[in-house]
């Protein structure tokens, strides 16, 4: 989780990732930033994020993104 927050802060430093729960709906992460994020997550955590999983519900908070990573690691 710490590593994930590190990646997020590098991409978009103006957000408190511990509390923010509308990263996508609040437009803190736009489509191009999500693309960078997906690419970094795939490298760092050795997972492959299918395009169908790229929905606001999975990316609206650091916690949700982390849950997605854990789910993909289990699969």
């Amino acid at each position: 989780m710490e590593k994930l927050i590190e990646i997020l802060e590098e991409l978009q430093p103006e957000v408190d990732y511990e509390t923010c729960e509308n990263l996508v709906d609040g437009r803190y992460l736009d489509s191009l930033t999500i693309l960078s994020l997906v690419s970094e997550i795939e490298d760092e955590f050795d997972v492959e994020i299918p395009t169908v999983e790229i929905i606001p519900a999975n990316f609206n908070s650091a916690k949700k993104i982390w849950e997605l990573i854990e789910k993909l690691q289990e699969d």
Binding site: I7, L11, S31, L35, S36, V38, S39, D43
Partner: peptide, 21 residues
């Protein structure tokens, strides 16, 4: 994705994925 992997090595983590984007 292949392009992104190569581009990230040259352009860094932020700008690399921008090519496929």
């Amino acid at each position: 994705k292949k392009i992104t992997t190569s581009a990230r090595k040259v352009l860094g983590n932020h700008y690399g994925p921008l090519i496929s984007g």
